[in-house]
């Protein structure tokens, strides 16, 4: 292709945007609306997952040992536990540490009356899981290990979190499905309008002897630009909105602030930006190819 033809094609793509202003606006609005919903939903789901994940990480299983157990056996047990795939983190708390933290947390100055460690048998492992739903399996295993006296756990927290996780997954799939159906409907409508606007022009181009590539190129460039603009608008909108909403929620529900661990706007946008722009440009690309293709067989 000649350089002048290439520039002509690019210029045509740009000026097509302004030739059919209403069509352009309708297409941008459609893509914007779809991607706005997508972005909003993405931000909510990601934060929800983050909250659940943070809560999960706080759930631990505590293992106590038989009286008079050897230090080497404790170490062996520790190694066995850390080999388990569901274990993300294991932390040894010695009897002294347990007593120290108990003293500072509950006793304060009254602790001076004790000369011996009353928690001499309270050395333990705090085990953190990477998947809370595996808790009961781990507990069953731990109880079978020789040298383990007792396993403490919080069953309710674990089952609740597992339940929330499943719910979020189902709702995600459901909403993505609905969004997808709505997008396809809206976009196919826009494309249909596009066909009636373009039909004559494509026809004339073909009669004069334009190649399919030459006919298609300006439309494809136009479609991709529409997709790009349509994706950029909701991104900007969500970016501005995000911090405002987060601050409002944290202020309003300040008592829950330890539970509500929100992601920063950068964390959300590091993936949302490329995905949204990709979807926008992709929709524009496919939409214009499909629209023009129907009329190329002249």
């Amino acid at each position: 292709m000649r350089i002048s033809s290439l520039f002509y094609t690019l210029r045509q793509g740009f000026s097509n945007l302004f030739r059919n202003k209403w069509f352009t606006l309708a297409s941008i609005a459609t893509i914007s609306a779809c991607l706005f919903l997508f972005g909003l939903f993405y931000a909510i789901v990601m934060n929800f997952q983050n909250i659940v994940k943070t809560a999960e990480q706080g759930v631990s299983v505590t293992v106590f040992f038989d009286e008079g157990i050897e230090d080497t056996r404790i170490q062996e047990i520790g190694e066995l536990i850390s080999k388990r795939p569901e274990v993300s983190n294991i932390h040894f708390v010695s009897a002294e540490e347990a007593w120290e933290s108990f003293k500072t947390e509950y006793l304060g100055e009254y602790a001076d009356g004790f000369t011996e460690n009353p928690l001499a048998d309270s050395a333990n492992y705090e085990i953190y899981l990477n998947d809370v739903s595996m808790q009961s399996a781990l507990v069953t295993y731990l109880e079978s290990v020789e040298g383990v006296r007792m396993v403490n756990r919080s069953e309710i927290t674990a089952t609740t979190l597992t339940g929330i996780n499943a719910l979020v997954a189902y709702v995600s799939v459901g909403i993505i499905g609905i969004l997808f159906a709505v997008s396809v409907f809206l976009i196919s409508n826009t494309v249909t309008i596009g066909i009636s606007v373009r039909k004559e022009e494509i026809n004339i181009m073909k009669y004069i002897g334009a190649t399919d590539f030459f006919v298609r190129s300006p439309f494809v460039i136009e479609g991709m630009l529409i997709g790009l603009i349509g994706a950029a608008i909701p991104l900007v909108f969500i970016y501005v909105m995000y911090n405002v909403v987060m601050n409002y929620v944290l202020e309003r529900f300040s008592m829950l602030s330890s539970l509500l661990s929100f992601l920063t706007v950068e964390e959300i946008f590091s993936l949302l930006t490329p995905v949204s722009l990709g979807i926008g440009v992709g929709i524009g690309f496919l939409g214009s190819i499909v629209t023009v293709r129907k009329h190329l067989r002249v």
């Binding site: 030739r19 004559e200 022009e201 026809n203 004339i204 073909k206 009669y207 004069i208 002897g209 334009a210 190649t211 399919d212 030459f214």
Partner: peptide
């Protein structure tokens, strides 16, 4: 099919309804 454009470039065509690009 891909040779058709080249073929048509040697034919000038005029229609009853002109078929100009209105914009």
């Amino acid at each position: 099919h891909r040779k058709i454009p080249k073929f048509r470039r040697n034919i000038g065509i005029v229609f009853q309804d002109f078929r100009l690009l209105k914009d």
